[in-house]
Computed example of a mutant assay.
Amino acid sequence: MNSFCTLFDANYLSRGLVMYRSLLATGTDFHLYVYAFDDLCADILRCMNLPRMTVVTLQEFEDERLLVVKAGRSKVEYCWTCTSHVIGHALKTFALAEITYLDADLCFYSDPAALLDEFHASGASVLLTEHRYTFIYNQSKKSGVYCIQFITFRNDQNGLSALGWWQERCLEWCFAFFEDGKFGDQKYLDSWPERFPGVHVLSHIGGGAAPWNIQKYTLQNDEHRLTINDVPLVFYHFHGYKFYRDGTQNLGDYWLRSSVIDLLYRPYVCAIQSAQQELCSLSKEFSHGYSSWDTSFSAAFSRLKRKLKGEYNVYKQL
């Protein structure tokens, strides 16, 4: 059985549910440890009593060192700070041999065992996935070569050494801007293949498809199975996707082929809408997940540039 962990609050709860159910749909044998970053998220998930899921609250997870830095970081920055600590907490608390952290806005299309089989065959202790940026969207210098989206650690000396180093760096500095070669929790990973023994970089292109690299792949529905460049698509990272109270859908800031919108985004939007409706039926208090329009001049200018470049993926109805 493969062990996964993730973290999110009520604002990402519908995304987290879609990710969890996409894992179920692949038929893989797994258990997901969800670190709920607010009480509403924890209460709803525990009420749902979903199979193959363990919910961990902030009260069960946070320690003194995390609480010391919490006040000085934004909500996003604190989540990034906590990612490595969530991984370490899950390994220790649940006595796991290994665990893979998943971003909540992933969606799975085939068994992630294909990615983990590659990792296990390598004999490594840490698995990294590259951004694999399309040339025109290459942000490696500021955002990093590797993406936190799907990262695995073995509970062994090499895995714990890399994880412990990462935890310390994130406590020292983890902010949503580039400074002195650092950005959030992610830029720290750039040096790992040289810094630590036992680090494997995923080669399977089906793991790591995302809006910043999908332009260089051919996406197809091959006998009811999605493939990219004839390789089974394992997961897609719906980074930048937003939805609004008036029903508007914003697919993000990258150029997307119509086939990508049809095969990936339309079904994902339907799944998110269904999850939102379910959550609203479970809790009258639930009104989370919706984005607000930025009405500033700079935001309006940015939207104009996106329109001119064909990157304005905003739809009243999709």
Rank of each mutant, 00 (worst) to 15 (best):
S296L: 09
Y78F: 15
I99F: 03
F8P: 00
S203W: 04
P197I: 06
R195G: 00
K92F: 10
S125A: 14
A299L: 12
S259D: 15
L304I: 03
L308H: 02
F37V: 00
R195V: 00
A121S: 13
S291I: 01
I99V: 15
N2P: 07
F4M: 01
S291W: 09
G207L: 00
S74V: 03
A113P: 00
P193D: 03
H131T: 10
G289D: 07
H224R: 15
E62H: 00
A10V: 04
L40C: 03
I205Q: 12
G144T: 11
K187Y: 09
S283N: 13
T295I: 10
Y241A: 03
V234N: 02
D29G: 06
Q317P: 00
Q215T: 07
N213C: 11
A124Q: 07
F177N: 13
S287F: 04
A114S: 13
F108C: 10
L219Y: 05
R257V: 00
D38M: 02
S125W: 11
E285R: 05
A36I: 07
S296I: 04
A71T: 14
M48P: 01
Y241N: 06
A114Y: 08
H120W: 12
E285Y: 01
D38N: 09
K284C: 04
D156Q: 03
N11G: 14
L202W: 00
L171R: 05
L279A: 09
T54Q: 01
Y146I: 13
W192T: 09
D105N: 10
V126M: 10
C174E: 02
H239F: 12
V55W: 07
T81L: 12
L32S: 09
F243E: 11
F8L: 14
C79I: 05
E118C: 06
I214S: 11
F30A: 05
V269Q: 13
T54I: 11
E60M: 10
A25G: 02
S191I: 12
L226Y: 14
L256I: 01
R21S: 06
L171K: 01
A299Y: 03
N229Q: 10
D63H: 13
S298P: 01
H224S: 15
C5R: 08
G159N: 05
A71V: 04
F37I: 01
